[in-house]
Design a protein around this nucleic acid. Structure first.
Lengths: 186, 186
DNA sequence: TTTGTTTTGGGACGATCGTTCAGGTAATTT
DNA sequence: AAATTACCTGAACGATCGTCCCAAAACAAA
């Protein structure tokens, strides 16, 4: 068993991560359509061939980036639930706040996440990653009413994607009553 | 005032419509990413220059296609409501059926519609078109509970986009209880 | 040091892209 | 009939694309 990592591979992993981060920035700015070896390489400040070396194809790069993006989102959902729990809250405030943030300052990131959804619709390999934040929510939240929970999950997605085509992003206050309605048991 | 139409313009309009239809088929098959002057022209059976003649740029072609697609969707929603009304139904069965169809036989079309959403998120000019089916629903359906109605609209979008990343499309029977929940007043 | 492995990056190839242009045909107007 | 308008289309241009090749550099193992 080797504890000391190979310095070469360490460099490679680091650069791979940088390329993925750069790719995500390109997607946030110009969408999946704007992702080419050259734009990503320029964004990352590396030569063009570096992206082809670390990712066997452009498609691999896209898949890796979106999977990484999905993991980040799932982590974020995890901590949101954790935060709500520690406050003993039902989560309405936290959810509304997270939605408002996703549609405001983090709008580009949210668009990137829905590009992942659409790519997953065409590429089955991406579907587990796209469903990841749904799975996190499902596993962490106790849901006695199965149907109500499915409505909640669908409602979140609907609010987000509809918020993306609003002329101006809705505030947490505007979203609050809708989130309340979604969370209120009956 | 001229009643007789110009035969040349009539031909042009017809071909323009054919190109838009071909573009929609390409989007359904390969996504917006697969749309090029050449693929569209091949799909429509016209020379490549025909698409550049009738649409000043590829972007114009995409916008025109997605606006046309949105109009069709709005029309469909209109008739669904009309159908439900004529039966005196609350619409749950119609909605569940429409969703199942959108995620099954018409899956490609549904994906195209959500590509429109994402494009509208980046191009404000497309937003009125993307919101069209929402406006039709809003104007036709009496909603005494504003919040419940917003939840319903978001729920529909969420069910659709989540259905697109399911490994197999949900049936109308599976969707029915969720739609019931969304429509049930409280 | 020598040998082997991994990363780096400049250069280039063929393919495909959006778009332009010029010459043509058909329909309408004068 | 002549002029005008609108549509059609083959050919081609320059740009950009994904990807490959190969030699140099960095690093690890021998």
């Amino acid at each position: 068993m080797k504890l000391q990592v190979d310095g070469r591979k360490a460099r490679g992993d680091k650069r791979r991560a940088e390329i993925i981060e750069a790719t995500l920035r390109v997607i946030e700015r110009d969408g999946v359509a704007g992702v080419t070896h050259r734009t990503v390489a320029a964004e990352a400040g590396v030569p063009t061939t570096s992206t082809t070396y670390h990712f066997s194809s452009l498609d691999d790069l896209l898949v890796a980036t979106l999977i990484s993006c999905a993991r980040d989102m799932a982590t974020e959902v995890y901590w949101m639930i954790d935060r709500a729990r520690s406050r003993g809250s039902r989560g309405a405030e936290e959810v509304a706040g997270l939605l408002a943030e996703a549609l405001g300052p983090r709008r580009g990131r949210t668009m990137a996440e829905y590009e992942l959804y659409l790519l997953a619709a065409r590429k089955p390999e991406l579907r587990p990653a796209a469903r990841r934040w749904l799975d996190v929510l499902t596993s962490m939240v106790r849901h006695d009413d199965e149907v109500a929970f499915r409505v909640f999950l669908a409602g979140i997605d609907g609010l987000l994607i509809q918020g993306l085509i609003d002329d101006e992003p809705p505030s947490a206050e505007e979203l609050r009553p809708v989130v309340d309605y979604l969370l209120k048991p009956r």
